[in-house]
Structure formats: C-alpha cells, structure tokens
Design a protein around this nucleic acid. Structure first.
Ligand SMILES: [Mn+2]
Ligand SMILES: [Mn+2]
Length: 268
DNA sequence: GTCTCTG
DNA sequence: CAGAGACAACGCAGG
DNA sequence: CCTGCG
C-alpha cells in the first residue's frame, strides 16, 4: 500500500490497543492533520519517539537519522557537548508519512530553526504539575498569561497531551539559548514572588511541595518540546493540542483531545 | 522498523 | 539462519 | 566529581 508515494507496511497493526487504533489510523491522522502540524515541524531539528510494536511495547527515542532513511528526508548537523548529531528535519508530507510508517508516535521539536540554530524563535513556559489537580494547573496558566500580558507579551496555549500545559510565544531571533533561558527563569522567579503557593522552580521533586513546576530549563540549547498536534504514546492516543484561552476553561485534562475525538473538535 | 552483530 | 541489541544522549541545577 | 530532572 502506498500513500502519497510512501510505502505503508502493516497498516492493520494495532499501535494503541486501548482505543484499537491501527498504524493506518496513525498515518491517516498525520495525513489529515498535515496542514496543522507541518508549520510547527518545518525547519526544526527533531527528536523522534518511536513505538514500532505499539505503545504497550518498548519504544525508543531517536535523535540521529537512520542511515537507511531515504534521500527525501532532510537532515541537519547539530553540535553537541562532545561531537555532533545528525537530526531529522520534517519539511514535507512524504517525510511525515515515512516517519509515521516507521512507528514514530511523538515528534519533539527544537525551539530554534536550522538556519539559525543557536537563536531560538520560541519561548516556552512548560508547566509540569506535581500530580492530580488540573484545576490549579489551569489557574497557573491563567495567572501567567495575565502576567505576560501586562508586559506586552501575548502567549499561546497547548495541551502537552500527557499531564501538563505549554504556554509559548514567538520572538525575534536575537538571544542565545542561555540568554533566553535566563530571561524565562527571571520571569518565573517574579511569578513565584506573586504566587508562592502555586508555582515553583525547585529542581528536586521533593522540594516542590505539590506546586506547579515552571520547567524553564526547556529553553536551553539542544532541548525539545512536544510538537503541537503530535500524538503522545499514551494508551488513549492523546494529542498535544493548541487550544484557545476560552477553551481552557472547559477542558478536564491535558489528554482532552485524542485520536478518537480530535476530528470532531470545534475549530477556532 | 530496520540494521548489525553473534552463534 | 534466528535471535538479541541498538536506536538518547543532553544540558543544566545543585550538592 | 556525582545525581536528579525532563
Ligand atoms: Mn511538560
Ligand atoms: Mn517539563
């Protein structure tokens, strides 16, 4: 079977046993939502998370493009602390479908683009809840939004598809990753001054006291965040989904949207 | 999912 | 030939 | 140096 010229193997293999979703379901999801996900993938180094035998089996992260990946897949060399990686870049539909056929469930993207790897064009406030209470997480997102709004920064919102929320905005590519991260850290410290019982940047889990962790180190060089519209390797096939601020009030968890209901979601 | 190494 | 292993480091905080 | 963290 071929879709857009890409060989699809084992289309009936079940990758999400709980929702009975097959490999073809995954590939069709990425095909049908390519218009939404591609703008977020284009031009950015990727880390893949693959589950060739389904999310109930062992999966693996992949930072380096496999030698056997076809020529239509773009790659980029990125410097690491000790050497380099050859990252995959998903610039077209064929690449997206090929990687999906490879069992890629999750696409994690850099905060910078390949033509200026050392200057991020995105800032993310990665909000990681200690556990349970999604309501306090929503509250945290709201107060951070208002805080940034007063500084003239308009941010957007994405469910991570697991437990947290990502609040993010774009900027001109003038700062290094170190500068960007330090700026987010300072903003987070200011926020903690205002909401000491709600937010924390303590690195040790034991020191977080049930508060919401603003994971500012996500803004460091070489780090990735889950790409908007990426599937997650959860039993229900949840999806990292951009949502409006109005929509935030009505959702009950970060896994609100999944393979089964994403198509019926009201558009914004 | 595919390659490579080992027996 | 079948079966097992690899496929991710990494960048930072804090002690 | 080490471990924890995501
Ligand atoms: Mn998170
Ligand atoms: Mn995080």
């Amino acid at each position: 079977m071929k879709i857009h010229g890409v060989d699809i193997t084992n289309p009936d293999k079940i990758l999400f046993p709980e929702s009975n979703s097959s490999k073809l379901d995954v590939i069709n999801y990425y095909k049908n939502f390519s218009g939404q996900i591609m703008p977020f993938l284009k031009g950015r180094p990727l880390t893949l998370r693959r589950f060739p035998d389904g999310v109930n089996h062992q999966g693996f992260f992949q930072k380096n493009a496999s030698d056997y990946f076809p020529d239509f897949i773009k790659t980029v060399e990125v410097q690491t602390d000790d050497g380099k990686n050859v990252s995959v870049v998903c610039n077209n539909l064929k690449t997206l479908l090929y990687l999906a056929n490879q069992g890629t469930i999750e696409f994690h993207t850099w905060l910078s683009r390949i033509d200026k790897l050392n200057k991020p064009d995105k800032v993310v406030f990665d909000l990681d809840p200690a556990s349970g209470s999604f309501n306090s997480l929503k509250n945290a997102a709201e107060v951070i939004r208002e805080f940034l709004d007063k500084k003239g920064i308009r941010c957007k919102l994405t469910t991570s598809g697991k437990n947290g929320l990502h609040l993010w905005y774009t900027k001109r590519r003038t700062q290094t990753f170190d500068q960007s991260r330090e700026e987010v850290k300072h903003l987070a410290e200011e926020l903690i001054g205002l909401y000491p019982d709600l937010l924390t940047i303590e690195m040790r889990k034991d020191d977080r006291d049930g508060k919401i962790f603003i994971d500012y180190p996500r803004n460091s060089y070489g780090q990735t965040t889950i790409c908007p519209y990426s599937l997650r390797a959860t039993l229900n096939g949840s999806i990292a989904t951009p949502i409006s601020w109005e929509e935030l009030s009505s959702i009950k968890s970060s896994q609100e949207f999944n393979l089964g209901n994403i198509s019926k979601r009201r558009r914004h």
